[in-house]
Design a protein around this nucleic acid. Sequence first.
RNA 1: GGAGACAUGGCCGAGUGGCUUAAGGCGGCGGUUUGCUAAACCGUUGUAGGGUGUAAAGCCUUACCGAAGGUUCGAAUCCUUCUGUCUCCGCCA
Length: 429
Amino acid sequence: MLDVNYVRENFDLVREKLATRNFDVALLEPFAQLDSERRALVRERDDLNATTNRVSKEIGNLMREGKRDEAEALKAQSKQASERAKEIEARLGGIEEDLRTVLTRVPNLPHESVPAGKDEAANTEARRWGMPRDFAAEGFEPKDHVDIATALGILDLERATKITGARFNVLSGLGAKLERALINFMLDLHTGEHGYREILPPLMVNEATLFGTGQLPKFEEDLFKVRFERDYYLIPTAEVPVTNLHRDEILNGADLPLSYTAYTPCFRSEAGSYGRDTRGLIRQHQFDKVELVKITKPEESFEALETLTGNAEKVLQLLGLHYRVVTLSTGDMGFSAAKTYDIEVWLPSQNTFREISSCSNCTDFQARRAQIRFKREGKNKTELAHTLNGSGLAVGRTWLAIIENYQQADGSVKVPEVLVPYVGVTEIR
RNA sequence: GGAGACAUGGCCGAGUGGCUUAAGGCGGCGGUUUGCUAAACCGUUGUAGGGUGUAAAGCCUUACCGAAGGUUCGAAUCCUUCUGUCUCCGCCA
């Protein structure tokens, strides 16, 4: 959510910036009217409440002095004020609801360093690490992960479809162990080398939590809703529960930045992507992810984004997987982000890079929704913190990237060296 | 699933309709005293909105005692619903 005062005072600039995000700026049209009406009504209501308070107090004093008749005479005056205040309160409620409807659906403002453009074509490549493996030189044609893993008996898509449906998968044997190895490897790296604290959060969250990180109210169709006494949703990413750890809190400035990492399964309905990535593990309704979250002071957040992205890249470097980092354009970024780097891993079967991590600085956008604030030492003012998150990494996609990039001519898969202690074997055959 | 108790500020805790602007204590912050520390004493203390102010400060004002409604001239206090916590019983990994 954007700052109301900022929107009021910089309306044209806000409009202009939002237009670069493919946001329909016509939706902002009612803002000025609603905002000024709200303030007028608040003022009127508060004045009436002040009258009610003053007269009621007077009534109390008169009663105590035994002047019953005088007290009775004042009641009408007080009653009238409080009734009018209630009427205005009702109107105000409607206005605030409308204003909220507008503001909660407006995306974050892009940072000035973000390339302007309407879609992924405007993304810019920030850097590239490693080289694609030269299969031609090795004299064989790389297969895709479905063929390799199915043949090895470590991936079973057919049975997953039977027991659940499309876009689910069963890993078995060393396939399951490789997944678990990756999770442990990533968590050990981030907690041991990068200074993150490990969190194991709930996988179902309430509406307020999803509002805090920006999934609700606008993107409900992307989520799995659970039937229960009240609405719960399966988390689409650990960013949701972990960022919300500090919802409605005022943190001590000296404790910032906070760095958390969490492994969780993630659940996404993938509404609107029915034809896309239907083969294999790329796009699943349930997948594992190790997430990185940082809560920082405002002046530190963009540097923290570089650090966080670097922490995610380190995983790929240690695994020896070729990748590139892309700065998303204004039109390609997610709702809450002010700046996003996607990390894309090389997939030989597709002869291209595919997203394996998305690292975003959400500035104060989520913090305002979730009321994550802090106080600087010796200061009385509360300030909104900045929140960041990034995959470190998407485990399922890392799994398939390893299968494809480490495949051998005989159909076996070499285990990357850093994973050998975790998997217990040097190759999967 | 059944029975009962409870929810007050950073923490403990008083407050059963108006003299509450939420007592008192602890903690925090500032100060006095002191060779230093401690103790003692004095002062101070939350969040959000609106108004005023060139800005900071300040000043005026509203709301907030788990949440949402209601009764009343007036609600922390009474009523309704919800949420959460605790205790006991049952069930359960």
